[in-house]
Design a binder for these strands. Structure first.
Length: 586
RNA sequence: GCGGUCGUCGUCUAGUUGGUUUAGGACACAAGCCUUCCAAGCUUGCGAUCCCGGGUUCAAAUCCCGGCGACCGCACCA
């Protein structure tokens, strides 16, 4: 590991500290692992990335956005299964100090299934280890007391330590618990999606890798609800010919890393992806990463193996990006959560979270109905007649009728029902709709990881200089404004141009120190997209030079046209050369 | 949590067999001069109780112990 000194991770972390993208938090107290502070440039870059997510999902796809709280009552994460799944029983070898998942050991050496092991208490685990004489697979040493590692942050809500609260490990539950209200606000129509971008907390055992694994991080969870009986994605045609680079679970099980480049359409046809909506969002996620500067061939979707999947998911893909230091890292997860979450919250809370959908045409159904005749039942069963009626209602009418016809009576528990006790008729009922729990596909993005890969893919070295070639839509600062030299009134003119651009809504920076070359270099390192320089010609004809960060080419444009030109440039409607006439540099 | 390597101005680092070190340099930054397009130059300035705490010693950035943090490996990453 000698070359790790100058890999991109090291270079980026150094640049990030020096120029104010991000750094480790709480440095003056020695730093705390897993927490970062974003500086001025980083905050802007992160905002621009989040803006990109909003633009893609909220503006273009009509998905609604909410913001819910981070501290969450214990009940929510008990119902969602997180309390059960976010903690792992671990044992440590007393001899070699190696740690193992206790449930994995039991599975392997005691033939206790994963499902069973999950339900076991620490005491039961300890006894099972003893009973099966399980020792350290590495050195044969004995294990000490099993311990639970809960990776959620726990707190108490209120001053008297009454209720347990958890720091949310994902933003998704904040959406599920508000489902009824959100569904109403979305005017009770499926499909619909809800996005939440916010902080989440995971008390990682040992966070490392800088921004890649944090204890407090920004997550963007999108829960997309649809009717499982109408799983078709009406937007599929927009992406059906997009290529998805997929590494399937099947290939992975065979030890293969071979990536299948397959169109969305074919991936669905071959049932590699079980949900159209999931495939759709995977295509969108790929586009997002391209927009952030990660080329298609540096991305892949890797299907999770059964035991790798989250407890709530039937099929999961991780979107991965190739980075210099660690190879493939996950930037987003795509899970088919089915009705798992809503169902659990419905059971735990007792609140109906089903939706009602009217059929296009009401369905007429003929039903056999057994109706107790209370005037007859009363005298026979006295005080118990109400109970008898209730029991009758709970059994299929067909069963009662068949028994009466065959035997002349129907026995239910201790009660003997005779034909004269009931009236049997066929009734027409009109069913106008159905109630069901919507299914959910969830794309979930780690914003800090998006930030890191955007930074890494923007990082370029040219001779001794560093240039951050961000896509223009996420550049933290759009334009720098510079007087060529700091005399003869150029500074004043440049200040006026700077002020104009700021008033027009551009993120701009003014710099008049040092030589012009030094300022360009400084700007390149901060990823400033364009440099606007005020020179002696400006004083004569009110034109300025506009410099492109990536090509270092310059065009000349008139100040009065600048706001409109720049607006169109940053919207991606015109390219750099359309900003003005090219200048031939000596 | 375990093992390994490491921690010196904003950044990168020299120094670490204990002693002319008031801890040196480079870059960056600030002020001034200069400067008509890619980190030019000159002058001046700012900036580190050497991660924190304790110990050994006449003397500690340097040795020892503990803590915190970083990276790598193991484990963990629902």
């Amino acid at each position: 590991m000698t070359e790790t000194k100058t890999d991109k991770f090291t270079l980026i972390n150094e640049l990030a500290r020096r120029r104010g993208f991000f750094w480790q938090a709480y440095e003056i107290y020695g730093g705390t692992a897993g927490f970062v502070t974003y500086g001025p440039l980083g905050t802007r870059l992160k905002q621009n990335i989040e803006k990109k997510l909003r633009d893609l999902f909220v503006n273009k796809l009509g998905i609604i956005e909410i913001e819910s709280s981070i501290i969450t009552p214990g009940k929510v994460f008990e119902a969602s299964g997180h309390v059960g799944h976010f903690k792992e029983p671990m044992v440590e070898c007393s001899k070699c100090n190696k740690r193992f998942r206790a449930d994995h050991l039991l599975e392997e050496y005691a033939r206790i299934s994963a499902a069973e092991a999950e339900k076991m208490s620490l005491l039961e685990i300890k006894e099972a280890i003893k009973k099966n004489a399980i020792t350290c697979p590495d050195c044969g040493g004995s294990f000490n007391e099993p311990q639970q590692f809960l990776t959620m942050f726990v707190t108490t809500i209120g001053p008297y330590s009454g209720a347990t609260g958890y720091g949310r490990p994902e933003a998704a539950q904040g959406i599920f618990v508000e489902f009824n209200r959100l569904y109403t606000i979305a005017r009770e129509r499926l499909p619909f999606g809800v996005l939440q971008i916010g902080h989440a907390l995971r008390n990682e055992i040992s966070p490392r890798q800088g921004l890649i694994r944090l204890r407090e991080f920004t997550i963007a969870d999108l829960e997309f609800f649809f009717d499982p009986e109408e799983p078709n994605c009406h937007l599929l045609k927009d992406v059906e010919n997009d290529i998805l680079p997929i590494l399937t679970a099947e290939k992975r099980l065979k030890g293969s890393e071979e990536i299948l480049n397959i169109t969305v359409k074919d991936a669905l046809k071959q049932k590699l992806i079980s949900s159209e909506w999931q495939a759709f969002f995977m295509a969108i996620a790929k586009k997002l990463l391209i927009d952030l500067g990660v080329p298609s061939n540096k991305q892949r979707f890797i299907e999770k193996l059964p035991w790798e999947k989250a407890h709530y998911s039937t099929q999961s893909f991780d979107q991965e990006v190739l980075v210099d230091r660690w190879g493939w890292i996950e930037v987003s997860g795509h899970a088919y959560r089915t009705d798992y979450d809503l169902k659990n919250h419905m059971e735990a809370s007792g609140v109906d979270l089903r939706v009602y959908k009217e059929y296009a045409k009401p369905i007429e159904e003929e039903q056999l109905v057994v109706k107790p005749i209370m005037a007859k039942l009363g005298p026979v069963f006295k005080a118990e007649s109400a109970k008898v009626a209730e029991l009758l209602a709970s059994v299929p009418a067909e069963e009662v009728m068949a028994a009466l016809e065959k035997n002349g009576f129907y026995q239910i528990q201790n009660y003997k029902i005779l034909p004269e006790h009931v009236s049997i008729s066929r009734q027409k009922t009109i069913v106008r709709g159905k109630r069901f729990i919507p299914h959910v596909v969830e794309p979930s993005f780690g914003c800090d990881r998006l930030f890191y890969v955007a930074l890494e893919y923007a990082y370029h070295a040219k001779d001794d200089r560093v240039i951050l070639r961000f896509p223009r839509s996420i550049s933290p600062i759009q334009v720098g404004v510079y007087p060529l030299v700091s005399k003869d009134g150029l500074v004043e003119k440049a200040e006026a141009v700077y002020k104009l651009l700021v008033m027009e809504g551009f993120s701009a920076e003014f710099d008049d120190t040092g030589s012009i070359g030094r300022r360009y270099a400084r700007a390149d390192e901060a990823g400033i997209q364009l440099g606007i320089t005020i020179d002696y010609d400006t004083l004569n004809d009110d034109t300025v030079t506009v410099r492109d960060r990536d090509s270092w080419q310059q065009v000349r444009a008139s100040i009065k046209d600048l706001p409109e030109l720049l607006r169109r440039y940053f919207m991606g409607k015109i390219n750099f050369h359309e900003l003005g006439t090219l200048i031939q540099n000596k």
